[in-house]
C-alpha cells in the first residue's frame, strides 16, 4: 500500500488537477448556456435552475441568424475540404509517384512557400480580391465563393505537402505491379491508388474541414453581411464589446457548433496524432 502511494498518488493528483484545469472553462460554458443570466459569472458550481432559454433564443431571435451562420460554416468548410482533397490528392500522387523534370524543385518550393503564413499575405489577398470584385462581384471580396477560392488556393501548398506525406506511406508495390501489367498512370491512379488511399483522404478531408471551420480572420474580412457570416465570425461579433448581455446565447451557440468538431476530432485522434508528428500543427 505504502508503495502504491509513493508510486502512483502523485500521478493521480497531477492528472486530476490538470483535468480540472481542462474542464473548467468547458464546464463554465455549459453552465452558462443553461442558466438564465447572461455572463460567464460563477454563482455556484452546481446549477440552481436549468433553463433552455438561451438555446431557444438562438433559434428564434431575429438578431442572431444562427442557423444561417451554421449553414454557411458547413457549406464553406465542406466545399473547401472536399475540393482541396480532390485537387490536392492528384497533385500529391504526381509528386509522390510519378517522375518528371523539376520535381525536386517543385517539392522544395512547396516546402518553402508553405512556411509563408497565409495571414502575412492578407493585405495582398485583400487587395487582389478587391480588384476581382470590380469585374466579377460574385467571386470577389465579400462573397462566400471568393472566400472559398481563397481558402482552397491558400491551403493548396500545405495540403499537397500533407497529402504527399500520407501518399508516401502507402506501399508502392501495388501500383508498381499495375504499371508492369501495362496500366497507364491515370488507370493506376483511379483503380489502384484511390481505393487504397480513401481512408487517408477522408482523414485529410476532415482535418481540412476542422481547419476551415476554425478560420477566423479571412472570414471576418470577407463576410460583411450579417446572414453571410460563419459561426466563428458571427459569434465573435455577437459578443464583441457587450460581454455581459450576450454570453448565455453565445455559450449555447458555441457548444452546439463545437460538438461536431469535438466528435470528429476524438474519433480521428489516432490519425491526427500521426499527422501531428509528421509536422503539422492544428490551428
Amino acid at each position: 500500500m505504502n508503495n502504491w502511494v509513493r508510486e502512483n498518488l502523485w500521478r493521480h493528483i497531477l492528472a486530476i488537477a490538470i483535468c480540472l484545469f481542462s474542464l473548467f472553462p468547458l464546464y463554465l460554458v455549459v453552465l452558462s448556456s443553461l442558466s438564465t443570466g447572461g455572463s460567464l459569472h460563477l454563482t455556484s458550481f452546481v446549477p440552481t435552475e436549468i433553463s433552455f432559454n438561451n438555446f431557444k433564443y438562438l433559434f428564434s431571435s431575429p438578431k442572431i441568424p444562427y442557423l444561417h451562420w451554421v449553414q454557411n460554416s458547413l457549406v464553406i468548410a465542406s466545399t473547401v475540404a472536399i475540393s482541396s482533397v480532390v485537387i490536392g490528392a492528384a497533385s500529391a500522387f504526381a509528386f509522390s509517384r510519378l517522375k518528371f523534370k523539376g520535381k525536386r524543385f517543385g517539392i522544395r518550393l512547396l516546402l518553402l512557400v508553405q512556411m509563408f503564413p497565409a495571414i502575412l499575405a492578407l493585405s495582398a489577398v485583400y487587395v487582389i480580391m478587391e480588384r476581382v470584385y470590380k469585374f466579377a462581384p460574385s467571386i470577389g471580396l465579400g462573397s462566400q465563393a471568393g472566400l472559398i477560392l481563397v481558402y482552397l488556393g491558400g491551403s493548396m501548398g500545405v495540403n499537397i505537402w500533407l497529402l504527399k506525406g500520407f501518399v508516401d506511406s502507402i506501399p508502392a508495390e501495388l501500383d508498381e505491379a499495375a504499371k508492369i501489367d501495362g496500366a497507364s498512370a491515370v488507370q493506376t491512379y483511379w483503380l489502384i491508388f484511390i481505393p487504397l488511399a480513401t481512408p487517408v483522404l477522408a482523414v485529410v478531408c476532415l482535418l481540412s474541414f476542422i481547419g476551415t471551420f476554425n478560420e477566423f480572420i479571412l472570414a471576418r474580412l470577407f463576410l460583411v453581411e450579417m446572414n453571410g457570416r460563419t459561426v466563428a465570425v458571427g459569434l465573435q461579433q455577437f459578443i464583441g464589446g457587450q460581454y455581459s448581455q450576450n454570453w448565455g446565447p453565445f455559450a449555447a451557440g458555441s457548444i452546439l457548433a463545437s460538438i461536431p468538431i469535438v466528435i470528429i476530432f476524438l474519433s480521428l485522434q489516432k490519425y491526427i496524432v500521426n499527422g501531428l508528428t509528421a509536422g503539422s500543427v492544428k490551428g
Partner: peptide, 25 residues
C-alpha cells in the same frame, strides 16, 4: 486532457476572453 485540443480554438479563446472579463468574468 485532450478536450481543450479538440475544441475549435476560436470558441475556446472567446470563452476565455469572457472568463477574464472584469465585471462579469
Amino acid at each position: 486532457l485532450i478536450l481543450p485540443y479538440a475544441m475549435p480554438s476560436v470558441m475556446s479563446i472567446l470563452i476565455w476572453a469572457g472568463m477574464f472579463d472584469t465585471e462579469f468574468g
